[in-house]
């Protein structure tokens, strides 16, 4: 007889095993890798050459939330690739020139000549799904910390900035898919927030005014 032939009780065992696997899979770690392309910003670029330095934690940023009970799932949300994509696209549109640094700015570090170097970090990331809140939206909240420093590593400005994204529940959409969409909305919000407030950060504004060539031509905010 062919190996593919099974009797009814054997088929029952297989179905029971399949059901068990499905149940166990439901309680495993839900992994979300956020990938997206982001649009170029529509704005007049600041007449500056900006250096960027992403540390490893930022470029490979991921968030892990361990399940608090047996009925819940752990979550692993990887935003690193999307973070780099967003900030690369946004900053290229906001500044006349953008240059990637060879190393973290500091005394003795050889880097290309730039006006200042931006060091972004993700301080915190939180998420909420309908199972947590009873509200039919998936939410992602992030807090960024930015440092603007000289080539020698001396601080020019340091500030934090929140970003928020949400997406509604939809028919046939998985939790992972919805969290991924919410993260993309949050990243777009981060870009919008940064682009419209950068020159209004008091320390940045003071620095821009101190540059002889800025001369009031650097306003990009509405």
């Amino acid at each position: 007889m062919s190996g593919s032939m099974t009797t009814a009780p054997e088929r029952g065992h297989w179905l029971a095993a399949l059901a068990l696997v499905c149940l166990l899979a439901g309680c495993g770690t839900k992994q979300v890798v956020v990938e997206s392309e982001f649009p170029d910003p529509v704005m007049n670029p600041l007449p500056l050459t900006l250096g960027i330095w992403y540390d490893d934690d930022f470029a490979n940023h991921e968030f892990f939330d361990e399940a608090s009970g047996r009925a819940e799932s752990s979550w692993l949300v990887n935003t690193g690739q999307a973070q780099v994509e967003l900030w690369h696209t946004l900053l290229r549109g906001m500044f006349r020139d953008v240059v990637f640094m060879n190393g973290k700015p500091g005394p003795g570090q050889m880097n290309p000549l730039v006006d200042a170097v931006l060091l972004p970090t993700v301080d915190e990331l939180q998420y909420a799904i309908p199972a947590h809140t009873n509200v039919k939206v998936y939410e992602i909240w992030m807090r960024y910390r930015f440092q603007l420093v000289t080539l020698g590593g001396e601080p020019i400005a340091e500030w934090t900035m929140p970003a928020y994204g949400k997406t509604p529940t939809a028919f046939m959409q998985s939790d992972e898919g919805a969290v991924r969409l919410a993260a993309i909305v949050a990243l777009r919000d981060a870009g919008a927030h940064f682009a419209t407030t950068f020159t209004r950060v008091p320390q940045v504004e003071a620095w821009l005014n101190s540059l002889p060539r800025a001369g009031g031509q650097t306003q990009v905010t509405p």
Binding site: P41, V42, D189, G191, A192, A195, T196, P222
Partner: peptide, 11 residues
């Protein structure tokens, strides 16, 4: 996308 970032929920 064509008018990013001026029509995001925040802006």
């Amino acid at each position: 996308n064509a008018l990013y970032p001026w029509f995001e929920p925040r802006t």
